[in-house]
Nucleic acid binder design. Sequence first.
DNA 1: CCGCGTTACGCAACCGATTGCGTGCAGGAT
DNA 2: ATCCTGCACGCAATCGGTTGCGTAACGCGG
Lengths: 358, 358
Amino acid sequence: MGNDARPLKKPRSKSRKSGGPATLDDSALRPTASTISALAGVAPSTVSRALKNDPSISVATRERIVALADRLGYRPNAIARSLITRRSNVVAFIMGELTNPFYSEQLDLLLELLGEREIQLMLFHVPTGRDVAEVVPMLLQYQLDACLIASVALSSKASDILAQHRLPTVMINRVPAHRHGCAALCDNEGGGAEVARLLAARGVRRPAFVAGHADASTSRDRERGFLEGLRACGLSLGLRLDGDYTIEGGFRAGLAIAEADPRPDGVFCANDIMAFGVLDALRRKRVAVPRQVQVVGFDDIRAASWRPYDLTTVAQPMGVLLERAVDLITARIREPALLPETVYVAGSIKERGTTRPG
Amino acid sequence: MGNDARPLKKPRSKSRKSGGPATLDDSALRPTASTISALAGVAPSTVSRALKNDPSISVATRERIVALADRLGYRPNAIARSLITRRSNVVAFIMGELTNPFYSEQLDLLLELLGEREIQLMLFHVPTGRDVAEVVPMLLQYQLDACLIASVALSSKASDILAQHRLPTVMINRVPAHRHGCAALCDNEGGGAEVARLLAARGVRRPAFVAGHADASTSRDRERGFLEGLRACGLSLGLRLDGDYTIEGGFRAGLAIAEADPRPDGVFCANDIMAFGVLDALRRKRVAVPRQVQVVGFDDIRAASWRPYDLTTVAQPMGVLLERAVDLITARIREPALLPETVYVAGSIKERGTTRPG
DNA sequence: CCGCGTTACGCAACCGATTGCGTGCAGGAT
DNA sequence: ATCCTGCACGCAATCGGTTGCGTAACGCGG
């Protein structure tokens, strides 16, 4: 087709390494668009267009380029691309400690969902007691498309910076306290109410609640729903303890419950880990579960089904929840002007051995 | 100082948005080096040099630029920087499912260590049954500095690609099966031998072993060490079972142990999760632990200290191990020509309630 | 044979930071 | 007054893709 009539300018004649033509270092260096273009006798722009199926490239040229590209194993440099497109296909995942196994199960699922959409995750860790705002500047240096936040509260300062940089933000299982940002969360309140109904139906008369730490909206919402549910069933809370969302906190709460007089006959713990501690304490005090005290947790982490616990709990539909979160994010990456949105997903009770059979 | 005698060229007169000078959009857009340079009346290159303490910039200019930069909250665009420097300060972390809580504890620690060094982590997930080589091309698109691999085996194909692209690689707790790549691992063999000595000292005469899945070098090494340790103590293995590294597998193995005749009086499980299953089964079969059977695990995951298990196990020094891994990586990022290296770190026995007191 | 529209592609700017090299200018020596 | 030296900084190329715009080539009708 006579395209060799035009003299092929070597695109980069002052190339620092060996100056040779691009024909010989097939495997030595990762091929770039101009490697391909030189070999195909076209311009780099044509390579770019051909590989993204731009209709302005003829079928013959496209096929030649595509064949060449995957013979050389060419993959466009994501760094260079995101510099110009201002999109990186990478989202930040901000998280606290993974002490609660719940979060690692979450991360697992999330990675799978994002993997399907060819989105990568960059991890940012916020040690307990530190503010999210401390990692945000670091995060902003990378041209990230969005920001997922889990297992850690978003301070208003951090929220402001993210808003200022127009970074789409989705909180997982946290209520967005500030004006910026979406959230996908389990209907914690509804879950709490369901637990109240379950316990009432199983004959509980003196319910107790073991709370997580006070600044966690999850614990507060679960408690509120539980209280309302109890009221609707004509019950009221007999005992309220703090469990700090840890197994040790739960253990201490369990000891208190075992010794309380009158002793509660049903305990709702704001998460599974604390419920484990409660069960450990009750067992230690030789209080029979579920005969004397029934126990319900929240989260349905894997260990909840382990034999020593066999815990009745509220299962969060993590799959659906994360799918919603990812939907919110991808929608806002495409269309940044979308308004913040909060999505609730209902949990479902998983009855096991720590409540009486219906 | 008369630096305004020279006319300030606007760096980008054909700017697409509003074309205004950089003075007004302080908070609107993230400032770039040329925003700073325009405001300071210097060239972008001077900004770059000033911010990295290049001695060729006068103190006065440097201070003016630094002050301006942090008034505007300027942070250099990491994408643009890594395009030219060919370094991103980001390493890949390839992992399988996080089903074993061990890995999430690992991830937690790793994030902390890397955080101190201002290194970010990009996560890649390899679903069980899939090959690492499937994510490697994706990984190569980003200008990552290195590659950490945990909880998943490196196929020779993946290893080849990584080697070909000269990507420093460190496996965590895996033996590097192919010629390329470093490793940092717990001395699994030594740990197994220690367990043998412990059980022998506690009076075990008919030891059993519960193995993980066959392609895991961790399980094989722990077994080999255990067998050698037993031999050294004049013992030999009575029973060997497969536990598949899962709690259910451990449970099945525990049932078999409970019913075996003669019944083993000591069981070493290649990880904690399987030991939990074994304990569950023994409890179900009313076999007393540690009186009739002593049980030892490996990993010392958090749940090993939970009351229902209270498991004697081999604690991996994860802190040290990961520090070594990070050292190996950072050294090779600085000096890619360094030869592959494998570092072993000794584990230590944590005696709890599933072995008899010494 | 000329003009016009369409197709297929190249040119060059651009994203933002980095860096080798060049240079204006001040100050000292001659 | 001239030359040289060195400081402090600017210029422009560069990393590798992307994209708006321009244009050569070709076909076709008039």
